[in-house]
Amino acid sequence: MVCDLMKAGQSASLRKLFDEIGPVDCVGIEERVAKYATRSIKKVAKVWGLKTAVSMLDLTTLEGKDTPGKVASLCRKALRPSDDPAVPSVAAVCVYPSMVRHAKKHVAGTSVKVASVATAFPSGQAPLKTRLAEVRAAVADGADEIDMVINRGAFLEGEFGEVQDEISAVVEACGAAALKVILEVSELETYDNIRAASFLAMEVIRAGDFIKTSTGKTSLNATLGNNQVMIEAIRDFYLDTGVAIGMKPAGGIRTAKQSLQFLIAIKETLGDAWLTNKRYRFGASSLLNDLLRQLEKEKTGAYQAPYYFSEATESY
């Protein structure tokens, strides 16, 4: 009973936080991001952008049919995406907790991190205890980074204290591993909610942790719009507290052109300090090959067929 009252009080005070961070005008956001799409990135700038995007990738496989073999080939691709030594490794491979130890074997000692989606990904609908145990297990197996999902049910119910407490518990369970907090923006629905959830998370995670758009398992994933709402939240939080939080859009970014638009958003909103994989990641799988195709095209001047690149899913 007392506990319930305390929780209610905490949620009420967080509601005040939402007043403080202010509303978002969704048409204004859409107009802002439409301007990123009109930027024209050419030549040296394009090559730099493409390579930087490669270095920011969390190369992901999150399928029920994942096997150690599939993870192994993903890791090889992650370490050496291209024969061209000028093309960097990706930032991390992102796998289910059961695959962490397999992935770790291949990338240990390299710059490529192992990230794992834990906390009953993608729904998060498991008891907190279970979710925390999953996080601890993944970290114990060698995960450098944990991608958690927030409790959207609690958020939409107005139980903000509960949402925040759960994130805090996961932070603790992470230990030295970095945390990425997935808001699952499609389920939060409005930009106001996305901004509020971003602040909820940022208040309890650590500098160097990330907030992340989506699981990639729902209909709507990363868009320039929700990316913008989140990076503006990161900017406002940074200017207010000095704590730099990272950002990871995930799901739906399939083309090199799209990824450049996301990078332009970063350059013009958060500035140069976020143009690094320490603060910005792309959660994607098919994006990598399109980046490689475009890099090859910049080098040779010839447009490339998809099947010239390993792990390609397009065979026609």
């Binding site: 990135i41 394009k46 730099w48 930087t52 940074y238 200017l239 207010d240 500035g271 140069d272």
Partner: peptide, 28 residues
């Protein structure tokens, strides 16, 4: 009012964003 207090607190020599030349756009 709370907001103002907050920005006042961090207003002086607060964190800055860097809009530099890390990724210049080529002429287009």
């Amino acid at each position: 009012a709370r907001k103002k207090a907050a920005s006042g607190r961090n207003g002086r020599s607060g964190p800055e964003l860097i809009f530099g030349d890390l990724w210049p756009y080529d002429p287009a």
